[in-house]
Each structure stands twice: as structure tokens, then as C-alpha cells.
Amino acid sequence: MNPQFDSLAEFAAMGGHGAYVWGVYGVAAVVMAWLVARPLRRRAQLLAALRSRRESR
């Protein structure tokens, strides 16, 4: 099995449909990274808040 594109420029162009294909994958990457980061950040913030409350007492 060989790559379907001969150069990086061709890969980026996607036969003239690059804006659509890369637009979709770019937005998906951002949304999916946000989906993973959101609960991790929430968990870290909760645990940090619990610790600081304990220390202030």
C-alpha cells in the first residue's frame, strides 16, 4: 500500500478540496481536545480547592 499523494503540497491541497477536508479535521481536533481537557481541568480544580480549604483551616 502506497501513499496517495506524491508531495506534502498535494496532500495539503486534497485535490482542490483542502479547505473543506482540513477545516473538518482541524475543528474536530480542537473540539475533541477540549472534550478531554475539560473534565481533567475540572477534576484538578476540585482537588486543589479541597486541599486549599483544608490548609486554610
Binding site: 486534497m14 485535490g15 482542490g16 478540496h17 473543506y20 477536508v21 473538518v24
Partner: peptide
Amino acid sequence: RQGNSYRI
């Protein structure tokens, strides 16, 4: 028929 746009 769709070329590369189908990769979506």
C-alpha cells in the same frame, strides 16, 4: 466521483 473530499 468525489475525489478527495470524501475523506471527510
